[in-house]
């Protein structure tokens, strides 16, 4: 049985695409055939972060319009087996996405034997975001420890449970919370909302906390999903997230202020 998972947040810039790329790569590296679809038509980013920008020939909209087959448009990742990317179009807008079109692509991926179909949602609550979540079985809500991000996530959760196909059929989409850019130091100083408060406000089960880390930016800029940087804290946290999603019982890490040793204090 294949699962459609939407990665969404409402607010922009919180790490949806970073999370989609890392999560999809994580699932694939554990041996699951995974496709990740960029729904951000007009502002495509996923291919950049995955480092396949220069391999894009056909895109999602081409497939929907019947101008290319799904097989032609899917880009196979060179680093991880089982990982495929369906890029968005940069020259179209979100009106190019139709319910029927998206459904046929998702169905074709399912019959093609993909176990996980990760939908990278654009920001906002407009058509692109709606299309990304409509066919979802599960949802990963990406939130920053910041008021407006938490509020927007709450809003998208409402849309998820009232406007999706599952909701229309009377079903419930399984929700997972991922808090990104978390900095225990700044929570301690009162700059950021604590993870307990976020979970309390959203009342969604916590899947992972990704610590604020310079390696995320570095990985994005070099086109490598951060999960492949196994030395970085963010990469490890995404690895934990994937394992937890697949049912492993792994304690949360990077939640407390790192105690610096003597040498670290001296040399930073």
């Amino acid at each position: 049985m294949s699962k459609v998972i939407v990665v969404t947040s409402g607010k922009g810039g919180v790490g949806k695409t970073t999370t989609s790329a890392a999560f999809a790569a994580g699932l694939a590296s554990k041996g699951h055939r995974t496709a990740v679809i960029d729904f951000d038509v007009g502002l495509r980013n996923l291919d950049l972060i995955m480092g396949v920008e220069r391999r894009v020939v056909y895109d999602f909209v081409n497939v929907i319009n019947g101008e290319a087959t799904l097989r032609q448009a899917l880009i196979k990742d060179k680093r991880v087996d089982n990982l495929f990317i369906l890029p968005a179009s940069q020259t179209r807008d979100k009106d190019a996405l139709t319910k029927e079109g998206v459904e046929s692509v998702i169905n074709e991926l399912k019959t093609d034997g993909f176990e996980f179909i990760v939908c990278d949602s654009p920001a906002g609550i407009e058509k692109g975001a709606f299309m990304a979540l409509y066919f979802a079985d599960e949802a990963i809500i990406v939130t920053n420890p910041e008021v407006s991000s938490v509020r927007d996530s709450d809003r998208i959760l409402g849309i998820l449970q009232s406007k999706s196909r599952a909701a229309e059929n009377g079903d419930v989409i399984k929700e997972h919370l991922v808090i990104t850019r978390y900095s225990p130091e700044r929570v301690d100083m009162g700059d950021m909302i604590s993870l307990e408060d976020i979970v309390d406000i959203l009342s969604v089960p916590l899947l992972a906390v990704i610590p604020e880390s310079g390696s995320v930016l570095q990985a994005s800029n070099s086109g490598v999903p951060v999960i492949m940087d196994i030395k970085s804290r963010a990469g490890q946290a995404y690895m934990d997230m994937t394992a937890r999603f697949l049912g492993e019982d792994i304690p949360h890490r990077f939640l407390d202020i790192e105690k610096k040793g003597f040498f670290k204090k001296l040399f930073g």
Binding site: D154, R155, L157, I201
Partner: peptide, 25 residues
Amino acid sequence: RPIRSGQQIYAKRGDLIILSQTSAG
């Protein structure tokens, strides 16, 4: 289920019982 930001719910002619939370907004 929780009533999220941006959602409205209306119990016409009767009482409304919510077992979960209602969000800001």
